[in-house]
Structures are given as C-alpha cells and as structure tokens.
C-alpha cells in the first residue's frame, strides 16, 4: 500500500506492506535511525515519536495507520536556530549516559512542555513513566526537562542558542 506520512515537516511517500510498523518505516525506509527500537512490546518506550503532536510507541503503530498524519522524530527536534531547549537541557544536566532511551525521552519532554510550559517534578515523572532508562535513575532526565522549561523555545531561538544556564 502507498502511504504518505509527513515526517518532520516533509511529506514522505513509500510503498509498504500493511503489517509494516511505523518504527521500521522510520528506521529502515527513511533511514531515520534516531528513533530507537527496543522491546517491540510497547513497554520500554525507546521508540516513542510524536504522532500529530502526541507521544506514541511507534513499535505498536502500523505505518498505514500513520498515513496522512504528522510524525515528529528526534531528527526533527533541532530548529534552524539550533538545538531544541530539551536537547540543550539534556546536555546541561547530563540527562543521558548510554543514550538509548534519549530520543523518546526528549520527544515526550517536548510534547509535555508544549502543553504545560511549567510542569512540576511529579508531572514530568508522570509524562516519562512509560519509558525506561537504565542509566540515570531518571533524576537527571527530570532536571533536563526542568532546564528546558526554564529556557523556553522563544528565548533559545536566538542565534547561537548555546549553553546559557
């Protein structure tokens, strides 16, 4: 079947089998390997992407189900003016070690901040509760999201949006 999915602002068309999973479409067909593939059972959350702006586990979405919809992956986080504040926050607060969960974590953080620019510690923990990290103990991920909340998009969209904490 032919699908056209808007990925990171660009319409991408491909011929896929109905059983083709969205995570495979992104990784294998488009070469967007920033979306990681983990448990394949919608438990670990490393495959989280934004579907029409909301976090979903792409191992449990068929590519054909995303036909005509918008998908945002970690490759689409960085803007013309530099890193997304969430990305910068992960750098500033050492929000990752091995990096396996990081793309999904950052997309969830972006979706959270888009809806709730000033989340509490508890709201951040709830938002990422469907995603596993075995390195950080989550503390630095929460701090990274808090850093991003303190440095909203507008402010960091300035040229050379580097380390400003």
């Amino acid at each position: 079947m032919q699908v056209t999915i808007n990925v990171n602002g660009e319409d991408r068309t491909a011929e896929v089998e109905a059983r083709h999973l969205l995570v495979r479409f992104l990784r294998d067909d488009l070469g967007l390997t920033g979306t990681h593939w983990g448990c394949d059972t919608s438990n670990c959350g490393t495959c989280v992407v934004l579907l029409d702006g909301e976090p979903v586990k792409s191992c449990t979405v068929l590519a054909v189900m995303a036909d005509g919809h918008r998908v945002r992956t970690v490759e689409g986080l960085e803007g013309a003016d530099g890193l997304d504040p969430v990305q910068q926050g992960f750098i500033e607060q050492h929000g990752l070690q091995c990096g396996f969960c990081t793309p999904g974590m950052m997309l969830t953080a972006r979706a959270l901040l888009d809806r709730n620019p000033d989340p509490t510690d508890q709201e951040i923990r709830e938002a990422i509760s469907g995603q596993l990290c075995r390195c950080t103990g989550y503390l630095n991920i929460v701090r990274a999201v808090q850093w991003a909340a303190r440095h909203p998009l507008e402010a960091s969209a300035a040229p050379s949006a580097g380390s400003t904490s």
Binding site: S42, G45, V48, L51, E54, P55, V56, K57, T60, V61, T108, E126, A127, S129, G130, Q131
Partner: peptide, 9 residues
C-alpha cells in the same frame, strides 16, 4: 492503566 503514550492510543 499502562502509561501516557499507551493511553494516547
């Protein structure tokens, strides 16, 4: 029930 990304779907 499950977690936020699953509850989104």
């Amino acid at each position: 029930i499950a977690d936020p990304p699953v509850r989104n779907r």
